[in-house]
């Protein structure tokens, strides 16, 4: 187990390095620089000076190592689009709304989805199963901005209960979080249903019934525990993936989160911020997969205690 985790950490370091190199090269492979925009014409001399002041005139590999050296010291440079603060300051300002939106969305959507999936699996081919399936399919196929617009129409325009946008007061959070919760809810419902059904058809469930265990005990102790195995590998990464927020929901409800910066840092050639965002997302996913693998191993005795002695 220790050996396994050490190996995984080494591979995360490798992934991280490879991603950083590829992203860095790709960013700079795109023609143009931060001061080539038509809306801000500057003379070539000024441009050269600006580039020199930001170190953009140096060879790429020097720039890369300089940047990564900074990253190792938690220095992600200065975002060109907001030079008055450091990249870290920008992140710590813009991330919390995204985190609240994503976190609350998953924390509400996931349990509801799991319950819905369980109900569907336990009452297979009943109305609740069909309803859950229909809901899950809709949740996954209707784009989130359509859901957002629907919510705004009903609750903000017609009923006038909640604000249509903004992030100031907590009651403004309700609509974006609801819109965002639809996706994890639908996904979790589908996964839970199929994981449960898969376990319910296993021979050992028949054996448990033949032993005279109550149906409740069979479901809650045995079936759920087994169904949780395939579920953790999907759920944890997804859980953490959502912490970066949703560009669409943030745009629809004008939430001042990170989403906008993912787009603007690319179009504005904001190398520092772009790198920081991608490295952050990469690191979070790496950690999420590591955690889910560890949880999987802890839940699964075949991995935890090894094979035949």
């Amino acid at each position: 187990m220790i050996r396994y985790i050490l190996g995984r950490i080494a591979s995360i370091a490798l992934t991280f390095t490879v991603v950083s190199v590829i992203v860095f090269l790709m960013m700079h492979a795109v023609p143009g620089g931060p001061f080539d925009g038509n809306d801000m014409p500057v003379s070539d001399a000024v441009k050269a000076k600006l580039n020199a002041s930001l170190g953009l005139d140096q060879p790429l590999y020097v720039q890369y190592f300089k940047y990564m050296w900074g990253v190792l010291h938690f220095d992600f440079g200065i975002p060109f689009q907001s030079p008055g603060e450091t990249t870290l300051q920008l992140l710590s300002r813009a991330w919390p709304p995204s985190l609240i939106l994503g976190g609350a969305g998953v924390l509400i959507g996931a349990p509801l989805g799991i319950l819905l999936g369980m109900a569907a699996a336990l009452r297979r081919n009943s109305w609740i199963d069909y309803l859950a399936s229909a809901f899950a399919t809709l949740g996954l196929t209707i784009p989130v901005f359509v859901i957002s617009m629907g919510l705004i129409m009903v609750f903000a325009v017609w009923l006038n209960w909640l604000p249509a946008s903004g992030w100031g007061k907590p009651h403004a959070w309700i609509l974006p979080i609801t819109a965002y919760a639809a996706i994890p809810m639908a996904t979790y419902a589908r996964y839970t249903r199929s994981a449960m059904l898969d376990v319910l058809t296993k021979p050992f469930v028949t054996v448990l019934r033949a032993k005279g265990l109550s149906e409740r005990r069979i479901i809650f102790q045995h079936v759920l525990r087994n169904a949780a195995l395939p579920m953790v590998t999907v759920f944890l990464p997804m859980f953490i993936g959502t912490a970066t927020g949703s560009i669409f929901v943030e745009a629809m409800f004008r939430v001042p989160g990170l989403g906008a910066y993912f787009v603007s840092s690319i179009t504005l050639r904001d190398y520092s911020l772009e790198m920081a965002l991608i490295l952050m997302v990469t690191m979070m996913f790496c950690i999420a997969y590591l955690l889910s693998d560890i949880v999987y191993a802890l839940l699964n005795p075949r991995i935890r205690v090894g094979g035949r002695s």
Partner: peptide, 9 residues
């Protein structure tokens, strides 16, 4: 390769 420990047997 048997699992266990830092060094596999």
């Amino acid at each position: 390769r048997q699992s266990g420990g830092v060094f596999a047997r």
